[in-house]
Structures are given as C-alpha cells and as structure tokens.
Design a protein around this nucleic acid. Structure first.
Lengths: 137, 137
DNA sequence: CTACAACCTGTGAGCAGGTGTCAGGTCAAG
DNA sequence: CTTGACCTGACACCTGCTCACAGGTTGTAG
C-alpha cells in the first residue's frame, strides 16, 4: 500500500500521512526497487488509533509516547488515563476563557450599535476598540 | 524610548515588541549614531491599541489591516465591525466543538473507570482509546 | 584607561499540526 | 515513446510569540 492509497482508505489527506511518517508516527518499509514507501495493514490500524486518540484530544507528541510505550511492551493505559484527566482540566479552562471572550465581543457589538464610525487621528485608531479597552480597566 | 523601555512600560515582553516591529506593526525611527530603534509615545499608543484589539479576539494580521486603513486616512471602523461579527461566529463554533470534546472525554473517563489496563498486542495499542473510537462509529 | 556587565542589533530556529510547493524519479497506458 | 499520474525528500508557510546567537554599544567601577 502506498501513502496515497493509505490516505484515501483512511479518509486522511496525503499530506497528513506524509507528515505522520516524517515525525515517526508511521514507519513504513521500503520497496527496494524504486524506493517507494510500503504501508502494511498494521500501519492502517496505527493510523486509525492515531485518529481515535486525536479525536479524544491527545496531541501527536502524546500519541507518539503512547505508541512508544506500547512498542516497548508496556501497557500505555496508565499514561492514557493521566493524560486525559489533564486534558479535561485544560480544556475546561480554555472553554471558560473562550466564553469570557465571547461575552466580551457580544457586549462590544451591542455597545457599538449606538456608536458612529470615526476617522483615525493621532490619538486614536478606532474608538470602537479603544472604548472596550477603557471599559476593561 | 528603546524597545526594552517600551516593553516594560507597556507590560509586554521585549520579544513581543521586537516581534511586532519585525512584522511591521510598530515602525520605530532610528538613532543615526548607534542604529538603535527609537520608539515614540505614538508607538506606545499603537501598542496599547494592538493589545486592546488582541484582547477582543483580533488576529495580528487583522490588526495590521486595520492600522493600514487608518494610516491611509480611512475609517477602520466598518472593517472592525465586520471582523468582530465573523469572529463571534467562529468563536461560537469553536466553543461548541470544545464542549463536544469535553463531554466525550468525560464520558470516556467514566467508562474507563470499570475497565482494566491492557497490554498492547498486534491488533490493539490501548483498548481504552480504541473502545471510544468504536463507540463513536 | 580598561574591564566588565548590561544593554542594543538582525537573523534564524522552534513550538503544533498540518498544508502545500518544488524538482526530479518512476510507472503504466495508448 | 510520450503523456499523465504517481512517487520521493527537502523545504516554506500558517499563528504569535519565545528564545538563542554573535556581534556592536554604553555606562560604571576600579
């Protein structure tokens, strides 16, 4: 199986397959005749695992660690449990941050509805944005 | 005012000032004697504007456009209104996506509580993660 | 006067997770 | 035999910094 075939079969872009191969997540063998990379069904399984883990919020670096641990014959499960707990906390923080930003933007639009457009001068670039900055403080 | 002084006064890292200068958001003049960059109070105002806009979710590229428009003597306000409406929609989408991920991770942890750790084999890297993938489909 | 620290400079690399472009090699069909 | 579709590695690009490097400048202490 070449990179292109694996990509199409796995509903992933060719670039992604090449990227994963370059960073060592996939380790295809080689066709000695032409130097082409050869992916086995086990690489397809690996790729499915990577997609599943990515879907669960794991970073590629973490996935690489997990795969390494598995290749070394150790159970990656404890590591997996640790990572996801940390990821849940991080994600919660990010969501809160984005909701704060969302409220801020919505309030800004509301406030701006009554304000006119202004021409820039030496002191001010856009009084709309600057008014939010002032309100913030 | 040198880069370092501007950075400290604006509660921004020196690297950030240099970065903004490199990408053209700040345009200091030069000391002819030693080649040092000279920042004026207007650059400090510009930097405050950049921080305010970034706080509101504007990207540096968008901020550059806004500043360019202002320098050309046009009101950047219509552009600002357009961008923020788009940003609100994008942000809402991202929040929903992250909440979906959050639920998925929390459900995974709950399900995994009753599952044992497993050793990897040819078919499976970590059955915890793979079980989520299967449930998804 | 000089040594030294603390500043300044431009350039380039690194992060994450791809996306894409390039020149060149390979292969099968017509 | 030529065309077009594929393959390869190496590299640049995106965002918003953060940092390292090597070298020039400045101010102070001895």
């Amino acid at each position: 199986m070449t990179a292109n075939v694996l990509a199409k079969q796995s509903h992933v872009s060719l670039f992604t397959v090449r990227h994963y191969t370059r960073i060592g997540l996939l380790k295809p063998s080689r066709n000695r005749q032409n130097g082409y990379k050869i992916y086995e069904p086990s690489d397809a399984a690996r790729l499915r695992f990577i997609q599943a883990a990515k879907n669960l919020g794991f970073s590629l670096a973490e996935i690489a660690e997990i795969l390494d641990e598995a290749v070394r014959g150790n159970s990656p499960c404890p590591m997996v449990r640790e990572i996801i707990v940390r990821r849940i906390e991080e994600n919660q923080r990010k969501i809160k941050e984005m909701q704060r930003l969302q409220r801020k933007m919505e309030n800004a639009v509301k406030d701006w509805a009554k304000m006119k457009n202004s021409m820039p001068d030496g002191d001010s670039v856009c009084h709309l944005i600057e008014s939010v900055g002032e309100v913030e403080k």
